[in-house]
Amino acid sequence: MDILQLIANGIPAGVMYSLVALCIVLIHNGTNVVHFGYGDQITFAAYLVVIAQTLFGAPLWLAIASSVVISALFGLFIYLAILAPIRKTPLLVQVIATLAIGTALREGMRAFMGPDPWPFPALVAPRIFNLSGVFITSANVAAVAIAVIITVALFVFFKVSKYGQAIIAACENAKGASIVGISVTKVFASIWIVASVLAAVSAILMAPVVTLSPDMGLIAIKGFCAAVLGGFTSLPGAIVGGILLGLIETTAGYYISTAAKDVVAYGVLIAVVIFMPQGLFGKAQLKKV
């Protein structure tokens, strides 16, 4: 296998990590909370599609649309009902709350949908393109295309629009933001909605490729790795970190063994934390004493 094929396999895996990392960083920038239940929110959104299709007989587009809407409302619920009321407690309490949300979702799905994998409908007809010796599947093309569109849309939103700027401002300095008339509560609520909508999008891209079981959300750990790689506070960093992680994994999978993929990925995470804790795009944390 040549290097181009490795890239062609690594990038689609990477963009999934990028999407997850992007949302984890977004939530973290706004509320300082690392959302450990995010992966399970993705699994939940994937199950919503399956439930709408198999239990209610909805067509795929309707199933996807309802999953996006319910996921968004669920994100708003998490913020308003759980995290907003405890926002003044120590950070550890809030982080454990996100762990609890994740566990409740995961075990809830195991209880109601069973521990066995469910088949997930492919978004696009399965095809394999041959670009002069490099093979690319239609699912991967769709994943990259959607991820690119979402990324571009988000960056335009944050750069150009007033509401995007307000979100960035409130993430940086909530006190300053509220004094210029920005409702910090609304900003945080909208962050949770955006992240939860993207959880549904990730679910739809991921579920056909990996196996949809209650434990699918474990893939979010790779999103954390990507976020750490990118510096954990930088949105572009999250994107680059995700793609880099995808490439590293694929390369390790080919040259060492598929079983070594995860070992290498987490090895990179540990190395980054030890030698470059500010990540690729983060700012060095210097504390004046």
């Binding site: 939103f157 150009v160 629009s161 007033k162 509401y163 995007g164 700027q165 307000a166 401002a169 933001a177 210029v180 008339g181 920005i182």
Partner: peptide, 14 residues
Amino acid sequence: LGMHRIAPYGVLSA
């Protein structure tokens, strides 16, 4: 950003 409250444009038009 100080004009957040009074700036008249929205996401889409911008």
